[in-house]
Every structure is written in structure tokens, then in C-alpha cells.
């Protein structure tokens, strides 16, 4: 496979990688903005009943960006990784729910 030197397809994929890198940079900028908003809201001392759901939502969106762009889950061939990860997330939510309700209910 390494012997197959095809410079046209190399240039094609190089261009494609470059375009993807642009999206990664936009993703990074958005993640920094979300982080700034989260910290800003806490420093501004809004009502915690409003701030807590918003910063948790921002964290979830930021993690989504990380998974789908930085970890390439938006690419083809990520069906099984998504199944593994979301099974993990499902058990994770049950775990947190169980531990918190046992103590705080």
C-alpha cells in the first residue's frame, strides 16, 4: 500500500484536511467563548437557579464539539464508537442520579 504513490489524491486529501482544520479552529473559538460565558456568569453572580442549568448546558455543548469535531465522531465509520460512548453516558447518568438521590432526596 505504501508503494502506491499517487500525488493527485495526496493533494486532494491535503486540501480536504485543510478544510477540516478550519472547522476545528472555529470549534476551538466557540469552546473558548463558552468557557468565558460560563465563568462570566458565575462572576456576575446571577441567580444560581438560573446560572447552574445554563453552565451545565454550555458544558454539554462544549463536550459535544470536542467529541464530534476534535475526536472526529462526525466522520463516517463512527457508529460503534457512538454506541459505546452513549451506552457509557447512559450508565453514567444513572450512576450520578442514583448517588445524588440516595443522599439528597
Amino acid at each position: 500500500m505504501a508503494k502506491n504513490t499517487n500525488s493527485t489524491s495526496y493533494e486532494f486529501y491535503k486540501q480536504k484536511n485543510k478544510e477540516e482544520m478550519k472547522y476545528q479552529l472555529i470549534t476551538f473559538a466557540l469552546m473558548i467563548i463558552f468557557t468565558l460565558v460560563s465563568f462570566g456568569m458565575v462572576i456576575a453572580e446571577y441567580n444560581p437557579m438560573f446560572t447552574i442549568p445554563v453552565i451545565i448546558l454550555l458544558a454539554c455543548v462544549q463536550v459535544g464539539f470536542q467529541l464530534y469535531y476534535f475526536m472526529h465522531m462526525s466522520h463516517k465509520g463512527h457508529g460503534l464508537p457512538a454506541l459505546f460512548l452513549y451506552s457509557g453516558v447512559f450508565v453514567a447518568l444513572l450512576t450520578v442520579l442514583a448517588m445524588v438521590t440516595i443522599v439528597w432526596w
Binding site: G88, A92, V96, M99, V100
Partner: peptide, 17 residues
């Protein structure tokens, strides 16, 4: 990574409790 998610969830759950 799916397993790691659960592992950290148990630590987050403990902390929140």
C-alpha cells in the same frame, strides 16, 4: 472510553453527594 465515562461518573456522583 465508554467505560471511563462510567468511572468518572461514579466519582462525580460521589462528589455531588
Amino acid at each position: 472510553l465508554g467505560g471511563e465515562t462510567v468511572l468518572f461518573a461514579s466519582l462525580f456522583g460521589t462528589y455531588l453527594a
